[in-house]
Design a protein around this nucleic acid. Sequence first.
DNA 1: GTGATTTCATTTGTATACAACTAAACATGA
DNA 2: TCATGTTTAGTTGTATACAAATGAAATCAC
Lengths: 239, 239
Amino acid sequence: MTDLPDSSAADVALRLENAVGAQERFQIMYSVLRDRICTLVYPPGTQLGEEALAEEFGVSRSPLRKALQILEADGLLQSQQGIGTLVTDVDLDALAQVYQLRLELNELTGRLSPATVDDALLQEFDAMNRRAAVLRAHPDRHEFARLNIDFFHVFQLLSENQPLRDHSEKLFYQTCRIWLTLIPEAALEREVKVFCGEIEEITTAVNSDDLEAAALIRRAHLSMGFKRLRKHRKVDAIA
Amino acid sequence: MTDLPDSSAADVALRLENAVGAQERFQIMYSVLRDRICTLVYPPGTQLGEEALAEEFGVSRSPLRKALQILEADGLLQSQQGIGTLVTDVDLDALAQVYQLRLELNELTGRLSPATVDDALLQEFDAMNRRAAVLRAHPDRHEFARLNIDFFHVFQLLSENQPLRDHSEKLFYQTCRIWLTLIPEAALEREVKVFCGEIEEITTAVNSDDLEAAALIRRAHLSMGFKRLRKHRKVDAIA
DNA sequence: GTGATTTCATTTGTATACAACTAAACATGA
DNA sequence: TCATGTTTAGTTGTATACAAATGAAATCAC
């Protein structure tokens, strides 16, 4: 199971105190901040004050800045002297190329070093399906975003090519915010339904030990999802 | 033309003094250090002292550390408290997966947002061919490495998908050192010849405005190159 | 002599003071 | 009133002192 980083203020500071070694502390700050950005706790345009964040985490600016600098390299933040550290905007047009690349990389997931399907893996997918069922019964934006992120990580397990995983992850985190920003409340239920269907279909393919099929299904849904996003944007623009 | 970063000590400090803005200074330090690592000015295992480097560049440790941290995220360095900042080892087995991914991404270069072939682009390739001719006449390890790096950047121009460029570049810099570490002196002339042939073939394809063909040729040479590297390693191991 | 322990030099990690920079508020004069 | 220069508050960037960690050398007990 992927860690569910508890990003509430007090707990993060506690986890940072207990962490041993600089690398572990960095990893906590990095993933907590990335999580907050991608679940719109920090919406695009939010200014993140280094001093305030450092105080919240119970560290000085120096180690915090390392996390911010990597997030800037990831394209999620942008720092400028005298201005501040701002959460980057997500623009569907700018993300079109990223989506195009993600399509192709997803197909590779089924071909490059495919994982062996064992019980542990199937259980991961089962867990996703259970959460999907709960979500379908009670659609909720935040839980939708969280399931989207967690399912991505489970899907990643299908390839054992580590570089492919790493780069797919970077690209995923560049795009995943767009859903929360573009889906209107009225369309949420329908999008949840489609997403849950995708999880089911992919699980079926994985159960059949056909990872290429799983990857193709994922690719198809990514492609269709991008087209639906463009529609949502148009509707938004009119409103 | 891609910049040829002059990485000699005095000039770097001068360029850093003239640079305006933190981002520009970071870019200089980052690319100079990456260049030194990938041309084996800093061979694998070299310890880079922060204090010494900062003094050489005429800055304090703080801005230098940002460059080191990004290079660590790139997989070219590894820092540990009490030990030092070491240039990572390149191991052909560990890089096999990276090579596999590079193969696939190179094919995408011909398909995703192919560039329009204009005079400026053709001149870039011509320049590469001229340098290749010089290199073939006088084989030299260092110039071989430099041409390899510069030709990569010219090849990148064939796709206008920026994320594809960015991620291909990261992967390239993870692998390109392996050539200098594994090619024995006796095989240098032959490898240079093969590489120059590759440049010619790709240029021919680009001149025909067939970028898919160019990408396939590149892919084929990457694949063959990897196999030759494995042979070179075996010969090395015996010796 | 040998093994364990302590000390010490060296390195990166962290905290913090200050510099550089920006935008907005404010004052000033035509 | 408007344009313009100045001040000011607030931000990130940089320099630097110190803490923490590591490994090797010196020291000591036996």
